[in-house]
Design a binder for these strands. Structure first.
Length: 584
RNA sequence: GCGUCCUUAGCUCAGCUGGAUAGAGCAUCGGCCUUCUAAGCCGAGGGUCAGAGGUUCGAAUCCUCUAGGACGUACCA
């Protein structure tokens, strides 16, 4: 459809030029001025060209320009041009557009929608970045969903994408769960308790917070532990390694369940030292300064901000120190053209400072860093608060969703048909979750209502899966009954209903939607387009019998259309991490 | 205080670089299963696009102000 659009821009331009010529006017850069739109209702045409931008050139009212241009255009072979007030509306030659499009989709297959828009670009995407003191919660799931999805979308746009994680495995917060374990742990392990490692460690983190309310020295003890640890205390180190492994193993299990993966894991425990060296180097160079209190700081007055600690007065490193080291290590490993940090909006200040610090340290690639600042997930009652126990745990949520999906399968008596009901339920849960998280623009805060938000009806992931499963089943039946339709011929002119034409237009728009999602780093564009497509198919499927159309050629042609729709759904599912189900 | 962002139907959200009558889903009400999966389809009601100015032929969209909200402004991450 892109080629159709540019073709029509040329046609309209020619018409306008001719009309202008008749009036003795000359127009410049006419093609750049032409705006292509979609008419608000399909019966008004397929493409719309508003004439407002030419009012000044013509010194005429837009409707009059439209009339003149339409007259000049006459009846081009590519379609029909009609005026509608100030608009020129184009009705495309449906048969030829359909033929071309369905052939293109079939040829491209899984690659339909892919482009070379970002060809040659190396893009690193950082996301997830869990702390090793507690399990993942709903906020992480949104981060993971966005990070994984934009990685896939950028890849589809031709970029060389490297997905990276950063394990926040050091810092005072880690010491807190360790300290609580030392005090109250009684040697418990994931094996001895049967509790998933990340949850077990998280329980001790909660315990620390309870204990610190009773014992005012708790915070100081945690700080002391951090100092001992950075000095290399072997006992602390051993405990750290053990508890870290528990957490990371647990978190990796959650990644596997949700279809998230990384090309490279970075660990703050590996990068904080190089970050510290970097800070000391920067101190020598005069980029940083030593404050009266002994801490090493960056003066940000040149960008209208205060100062920021780069290294604590006791010599231990902060978040910033580690992120400096990590960024530098990453650019060495993978000289990116762009590094996208998928991190919550609450850390905007941090990244502003980080990027600024790297620039001042003389790293030219500091300009290629980008903070994809996404919004928070809130509950109807407000913020999720771990202290009040209102945090929605990732594993619990997945388990609940899977249970709901399984109950639904049983209620609909689809266990047999579906094959492995548990596996299917798990995939439905993922679809519900990922679609819910990705249908919203990343940068906006969103509200998660556990009771209502994850329904399986309406504008949801399972609805998409359902439509694709139905198409798949129908196509399988077609294959089984192949002899019945032997000798059938594809006749695109038979696909002449409005429902079919709507589908054609949606299929043709898919690649541009993917490109837009890539340039805006916004998966919700893909999600919305998938919904529109599924919805349009649903209407078509309801109105237009396929296998029972009564006309072999019509059946064959509608099958071809359905195949293309299924291809778009499958390709799009891949981009937003929704599993395709052949049966549901 | 300062900075950044948000405010569209009862609720949750779309609405692309300004363009024709602002759209979905949920919820409410009413239809549709001897025919390809009813996790579906069709229809109805529901809007001063927070408010006020401005720019423009034209504003939910751009600018300014006001109100409400979120986040940040840590030797937490």
């Amino acid at each position: 459809m892109d080629s159709v659009k540019s073709q029509w821009i040329k046609i309209i331009a020619a018409g306008l030029l001719e009309a202008a010529g008749e009036k003795g006017l000359t127009l410049e850069n006419i093609e750049d001025k032409i705006v292509v739109e979609r008419p608000p209702r399909s019966e008004m045409g397929d493409l719309a060209f508003p004439m407002f931008p030419f009012a000044k050139d013509f010194r005429m009212a837009p409707p009059a320009i439209a009339a003149l241009a339409a007259q000049a255009l006459g009846t081009p072979s590519e379609g029909e041009v009609k005026t509608a007030g100030p608009y020129l509306n184009v009705f495309l030659n449906r048969t030829s557009v359909t033929r071309e499009l369905l052939n293109e989709v079939e040829k491209a297959g899984d690659a339909y929608g892919a482009s070379d828009m970002l060809k040659g670009q190396k893009v690193m995407v950082e996301f997830s970045c869990p702390n090793t003191n507690k399990p993942l919660h709903l906020g992480h799931l949104r981060n993971d969903a966005i990070g994984e999805s934009i990685s896939r979308i950028l890849k589809a746009a031709g970029a060389d994408v490297k997905k990276v994680n950063l394990i926040n495995n050091r810092g005072v917060h880690i010491c807190k769960s360790m300290l609580a374990y030392q005090k109250f742990g009684e040697g418990k392990t994931p094996e001895s308790t049967g509790i998933k490692g990340d949850h077990l460690v998280g329980d001790f983190y909660v315990k620390f917070n309870q204990w610190s309310k009773e014992d005012s020295t708790a915070e100081e003890q945690a700080q002391e532990m951090l100092r001992q640890w950075e000095k290399g205390d072997p006992q602390i180190n051993e405990l750290w390694e053990t508890m870290n492994r528990w957490t990371i193993d647990g978190i990796r299990e959650t990644y596997e369940k949700t279809g998230i993966s990384f090309d490279t894991y970075y660990y703050e425990s590996d990068t904080y030292l190089s970050g510290r060296d970097e800070v000391l180097k920067g101190l020598e160079q005069g980029v940083f300064y030593k404050d009266e209190d002994g801490s090493i700081r960056l003066d940000l007055s040149d960008i209208g901000m205060d100062t920021k600690v780069m290294l604590r007065s006791d010599g231990t490193s902060v978040y910033m120190t580690q992120d400096l080291g990590t960024a530098i290590a990453r650019h060495k490993d993978f000289p990116f053209d762009r590094l996208i940090y998928v991190v919550g909006a609450e850390q905007e200040y941090h990244f502003k400072v980080l990027f600024h610090a790297l620039k001042k340290l003389g790293y030219s690639w500091a300009d290629m860093l980008y903070h994809l600042s996404y919004g928070m997930v809130n509950l109807p009652e407000g913020k999720m608060k771990s202290r009040e126990g209102t945090v929605v745990d990732a594993d619990d949520l997945l388990a609940d969703l899977t249970k709901m999906a399984k109950d639904e399968i049983i209620a609909k008596e689809r266990e047999e048909a579906v094959g492995d009901a548990d596996e299917t339920a798990g995939k439905i849960a993922l679809a519900a979750l990922h679609y819910f998280l990705l249908q919203v623009s990343p940068y906006k805060d969103m509200i998660f209502n556990p009771r209502e938000s994850l329904s399986f009806n309406g504008n949801t992931g399972p609805y998409l899966q359902y439509m694709s499963a139905r198409i798949n089943s129908m196509l399988e039946k077609y294959q089984e009954r192949k002899e019945e339709f032997a000798g059938a011929e594809l006749d695109y002119s038979l696909l002449n209903s409005e429902a079919e034409w709507e589908l054609i237009k949606l299929i043709s728009a898919y690649p541009s939607q993917v490109r837009q999602a890539a340039s805006e780093l916004n998966p919700s564009i893909v999600a919305a387009h998938l919904y529109d497509t599924a919805k349009a198919f649903s209407r078509f499927y309801h109105d237009c019998p396929i296998l029972g159309s009564g006309d072999k050629n019509l059946t064959r042609s509608r099958v071809a259309l359905s195949e293309a729709v299924l291809q778009i759904l499958k390709n799009g599912f891949e981009l937003v991490n929704i599993p395709f189900l052949s049966k549901m």
